[in-house]
Write a protein that binds this DNA or RNA. Structure first.
Length: 531
DNA sequence: TCTTCCACATT
DNA sequence: TAATGTGGAAG
């Protein structure tokens, strides 16, 4: 990882995002994350997905965590991610409907342990958990809708319960993962999965993390406490508090005043990344290894840094190394809270606790809900892709929030963590069309708890342009032509490997989806575990 | 060494 | 008050 590198102070609570009306934003937490530049680099010409750019919200915060080595708690009941995954999407056709979804894939084949203040590889990874997709509850929605404000995936939860019935994303503790965002263009029926379905995917390497059941690195603990509103209670007011906490944690790290934690965190290399650590350099310098990263001015302000769009490795037309244009960086992102849509009865009151988090996500549904997502399914609950509109079946806000949205999926892998961000608008191969019924199952039912999930799973199976085993060799190459080929203009783009371990035998239903996988790599330095 | 359960804090 | 978060104790 270690693609962070900012030397700025913490950006302030991540919750002060753009959904909050300006006046609600805490003055002390400049939401520079609310500004976003136009993305200059989409060059795809397929399926109308060209020009789409995705900007990671609170990128600075993500980078801070990444520098240290992000850890995400996973619990049986499911735990949200922090920082939460929020993005601003631009370049969408205002009238076209899109489905936004996320998945989290293994970043490598290792199992880790935290020892000597650093992450070390301890062996082979456990078989991957059943892949699940988290479809944003607003899906499908028009480009105008998605573009209106930040799209938040903060409701996404991570669990280590292999039998999780809630649709949470299942992960293995002590394994490294990479969240990915997929934007799929809904077809005329508000669904997708046809062979012409277009989509693009984006990966922000700084959002990679190691799943843990309890924090291993105290620096991460401190960062979480510092930035997560829910952890305010753990924020010490003085040095003693920190010493106390450190002591309680049984850590022998020197404890510094809270006021200096940030500096300490920013100035210390990440044992996690293991590379380029010793010296904390400028953001752009740190990002430099990532060829897909947009260049950033060394004098970039936090706003600009945040505004840096992800690198897109688009297909089929390779782009030149994305270079953020200043003028575009300056484009300001609207931070006003979206007005409720009359037709969508929304909850008039948000849970207070949600404010800081949901503020940025009107798309989350707290502010309103679409009548929405109905994914056609077969009588067995399997995807049928018969063309029913996604919007056919309204779901309650509650449903939308909780279940909207996880899907079983093949187990993709971010093999060889080398991507920074990529997109591969392309035509889905016929192999991605709805599959036959799943075999009865299964330790990892696609979405046992969610009726909606069942419907939505259609989307997952049909559209997920994910990776998995059996990837045609040619697809490993960035230059491969054809619908699924991807061109990553990355310096480091070693061929992807297949991972026999992730075979269909693990979870038959889940490995049924794609015969043709799109494996993209954008050459980002590998996380150096056990460096 | 890692996971689960708990009390407590915040919104 | 409920939901959700946290770190830490206990297993």
């Amino acid at each position: 990882m270690a693609n962070g590198g900012d030397q700025f102070g913490l950006s302030g609570r991540p919750d002060s995002d753009c959904n909050e009306s300006p006046k609600e934003n805490e003055p002390e937490t400049p939401s520079f994350s609310c500004s976003s530049p136009a993305s200059p680099q989409t060059t795809t010409n397929q399926q109308g997905m060209e020009g789409i750019n995705v900007f990671l919200h609170d990128r600075e915060l993500w980078r801070k965590f990444d520098e240290v080595g992000t850890e995400m708690i996973i619990t049986k009941a499911g735990r949200r991610m922090f920082p939460s995954y929020k993005v601003k999407v631009t370049g969408l056709n205002p009238k076209t409907k899109y489905i936004l979804l996320m998945d989290i894939v293994p970043r490598d084949d290792n199992r880790y342990k935290f020892a000597d203040n650093k992450w070390l590889v301890t062996g082979k990874a456990e078989p991957a958990m059943p892949g699940r997709l988290y479809v944003h509850p607003d899906s499908p929605a028009t480009g105008a809708h998605w573009s209106r404000q930040l799209v938040s995936f903060q409701k996404l939860k991570l669990t280590n319960n292999h039998l999780d019935p809630f649709g949470h994303i299942i992960l293995n503790s002590m394994h490294k993962y990479q969240p990915r965002l997929h934007i799929v263009k809904a077809d005329e029926n508000n669904g997708f999965g046809s062979k012409n379905t277009a989509f693009c995917s984006h990966v922000f390497s700084e959002t990679a993390f190691i799943a843990v059941t309890s924090y291993q690195n105290h620096k991460i603990t401190q960062l979480k406490i510092e930035n997560n509103p829910f952890a305010k209670g753990f924020r010490g007011s003085d040095d003693n508090e920190l010493h106390r906490m450190a002591k309680l944690q049984g850590k022998d790290y020197p404890v510094v005043p809270r006021s200096t934690v940030r500096q300490r965190l920013c100035s210390s290399g990440s044992p996690f990344s293991g590379k380029g650590q010793g010296v904390m350099v400028s953001p752009e310098a740190v990002a430099s290894p990532y060829s897909c990263e947009n260049g950033l001015k060394s004098s970039s302000s936090p706003q600009e840094l945040m505004a840096a769009p992800p690198t897109h490795c688009t297909s089929p037309h390779p782009q030149p190394p994305p270079q953020l244009q200043h003028s575009q960086q300056q484009q300001l992102y609207q931070c006003s809270k979206r007005k409720r849509v009359e037709n969508y009865p929304s909850e008039n009151h948000q849970h207070q606790y949600k404010k800081p988090f949901t503020s940025s996500s009107t798309t989350e549904g707290e502010l309103y809900y679409h009548p929405s997502s109905s994914f056609p399914t077969s009588p067995t609950g399997l995807p049928t892709n018969t063309g029913h509109g996604l919007a056919d079946a309204p779901y309650s806000s509650d449903m939308g929030q909780r279940q909207a949205c996880m899907f079983a999926n093949l187990e993709p892998r971010m093999d060889e963590p080398g991507f920074s961000s990529w997109s591969y608008p392309c035509t889905l191969p016929s192999s991605m069309t709805p599959m036959e019924h799943y075999p009865p199952y299964t330790p990892h039912p696609p979405y046992s708890s969610s009726p909606q999930g069942s419907r939505l799973s259609t989307v997952a199976h049909q559209s997920t342009p994910l990776m998995g085993e059996h990837i045609p060799p040619e697809l490993y190459q960035n230059q491969s032509p054809g619908p699924l080929s991807l061109n990553c203009h990355n310096v480091h783009s070693p061929p992807l490997r297949e991972h026999p371990r992730y075979t269909s035998s693990l979870s038959p239903p889940l490995y049924h989806t794609l015969e043709t996988h799109t494996h993209i790599r954008c050459g980002v330095p590998e996380w150096s575990a056990a460096s």
